[in-house]
Design a protein around this nucleic acid. Structure first.
Lengths: 153, 153
DNA sequence: AACACTTCTTAGCCTAGGCTAACTTTCAGA
DNA sequence: TCTGAAAGTTAGCCTAGGCTAAGAAGTGTT
């Protein structure tokens, strides 16, 4: 039972509670990632195609229709989505807000990745994963980076 | 049924198959993230403390001991970890490789985040999530960015 | 109006990754 | 040595998010 608060030697590991907090935050982000992906995609489809049908989500998420039905059920339960059976999907107020936030985060991450040297396609690919795990502080830093690059001095 | 290949107007959505491929890649990364976190932590504990006990993983991951037992079981099944009951955890060859790769990716992401303006603690926090979702191309770009910054000709 | 096709839902299954409660094993100190 | 605390395991539960197969509900064409 070594007490790292006393000796403080060549420790690179953070305190256990801090370490645990990081992972907890991570698990939280994982839980919200699916919801964000779905509402973001629904918003995109509504904007670009005029309607968001479950079958389109199924195709674009690469997932069975049964899975979409189940997921939409959870989003509905959580007050993010409304459905009119056989009439496509709609976002609630909360869903729209979440989608807007997700999209602006997504776009920021894409622009940042391109700025540090990724090609557009890879940037899109990576943003899909990174957008859910970047903290507000990180996003702010990305934005500062872009601002400085666009307007040096 | 609009055919976006024909008109090609103000579409910002990628082709459905490409879109699906992104999400598939994402789900793949999610599946490997837990394994990477565990072997990385086990490697750290072995290096820093001389042994990796399940109870330490439990504390540092912020998860019950029962959950650790179950997860370790999966890692063992997948050939990443070996256990001697009541004797701590050890990495297999494959586990060690994975841990090494994960750690170097983690460190690269941390250094990159600091370089773009995050403080050390936030960088560590964010790296925990981002390291599993950055492609090799992105990591290469991060490395180039660091190299250029450290040695601007 | 009827038929076929597409869309959506339902039922039943699975794995990963969480939990608590209860039990077993090990270890250290009196 | 024995005994209590710590460590580890087991059993039983849960949710999210996948799947397939089968059935129901619209839609469109003739």
């Amino acid at each position: 039972m070594t007490d790292s608060r006393v000796s403080m030697p060549r420790r690179s590991l953070p305190a256990a509670e801090d370490h645990a907090a990081r992972f907890a935050r991570q698990r939280e982000a994982d839980r919200t990632a699916t919801a964000e992906d779905y509402v973001e995609l629904i918003a995109d489809l509504l904007r670009e195609e005029g309607e968001a049908r479950a079958v389109d989500l199924s195709r674009r998420m690469g997932v069975s229709q049964a899975t979409v039905t189940a997921t939409i059920g959870r989003l509905q339960r959580d007050g993010l989505v409304e459905t009119k059976p056989y009439r496509g999907l709609f976002l609630t107020e909360a869903g729209t807000e979440l989608a807007t936030a997700a999209k602006s985060r997504h776009d920021l991450v894409v622009r940042f990745l391109i700025a540090v040297g990724l090609d557009a396609e890879t940037a899109e690919q990576d943003a899909e994963g990174l957008e859910h795990h970047a903290s507000d502080e990180a996003l702010a830093a990305f934005a500062r980076f872009l601002a400085k690059r666009d307007d040096p001095i």
